[in-house]
């Protein structure tokens, strides 16, 4: 009883963590299912069919690749633009800082329907054809804000003396940036890019408004939900989940090992 009282918070915390993973476990388990009807919602029979034949349903892999393409492009552009803004905000004093900060914050505080519908309103008014580029443009727009916030935090956490030390040691502004500032901010930029990609890859609402006839992976899933989601979708989603988790845990592990080595060295 005493033990329970002492560890109550830990028990509840771990239960919540488990709760977070229940739906994901369902998705993964159902990827090994052979559904009885057309809807893959209840366990019927074990099957590796979906995993052996990932592209076995028309359109599934096409939409998956489209999402990766858009994700890579939007992440690249959004990360570059966002990083530049973050540098300007942290490193320079200029008029219009607070307006800029507000402009960065607003897209994150606006519901996705509004972001999606307003862009659609613009594209319709301009008679701009909907498709790959309109979706990419939209994704770049919301990625920028997240990148600015992440990179800004990293830059603000950096000791200004490091750059002074570089300047003191014969590094001109270009060399200071290349050999000191950039390598130190890079982990933050990569983290922001990873976040940006996963937001883009997973976005449904904004994409749905601006895709026209283009089918991204989430749009494919949405369409399939009405007539039964193919098991392949579960397999692909599980694959993406496991891969991203491995990447992040891997980074975490090397970090941890470095710190361990450090502690043993001192």
């Amino acid at each position: 009883m005493k033990w329970l009282r002492k560890n109550l918070i830990a028990i509840i915390g771990i239960l919540v963590l488990v709760y977070l993973f229940v739906p994901i476990a369902v998705v993964a388990i159902l990827s090994f299912n052979e559904p009885a009807g057309k809807f893959n919602v209840a366990w019927n029979q074990f099957s590796l069919e979906a995993w052996q034949n990932l592209c076995g349903v028309p359109g599934v892999c096409q939409s998956f690749l489209t999402s990766i393409e858009i994700g890579v492009l939007a992440t690249l552009a959004g990360t570059i633009l966002g990083t530049m803004i973050a540098f300007a905000l942290v490193r320079y004093r200029f008029r219009g800082r607070s307006t800029t900060n507000l402009l960065i914050f607003l897209p994150m505080a606006t519901p996705e329907v509004v972001l999606g519908s307003s862009l659609l309103a613009l594209f319709l008014n301009l008679a701009f054809p909907l498709g790959f580029w309109t979706v990419t443009i939209a994704h770049i727009m919301f990625i920028i804000s997240f990148v600015v916030v992440t990179v800004k935090a990293r830059l603000q956490g950096m000791d200004p003396r490091l750059e002074e030390a570089a300047r003191d040691l014969y590094a001109d502004p270009q060399a200071t940036f290349r050999y000191v500032t950039f390598p130190l901010v890079l982990p933050g930029i990569l983290g922001a890019a990873l976040l940006g990609f996963s937001l883009s890859f997973d976005d449904y609402i904004i994409s749905a408004f601006n895709a026209g006839t283009l089918v991204t992976f989430p749009i494919f899933i949405w369409g399939a939900a009405q007539r039964g989601i193919p098991v392949q979708v579960n397999a692909l989603a599980t694959l993406v989940f496991v891969l991203s988790l491995l990447v992040v845990l891997g980074a975490q592990f090397t970090n941890h090992r470095r710190r361990r080595k450090l502690e043993s060295a001192v």
């Binding site: 993973f21 994901i24 159902l30 989603a237 993406v240 989940f241 992040v248």
Partner: peptide, 20 residues
């Protein structure tokens, strides 16, 4: 990391999983 991990699984699919 585990708290952020659900982000890596499709939003639509993990919503749909609640049907199960």
């Amino acid at each position: 990391v585990l708290v952020v991990a659900p982000f890596f699984a499709s939003f639509l699919l993990r919503t749909y999983a609640w049907r199960t």
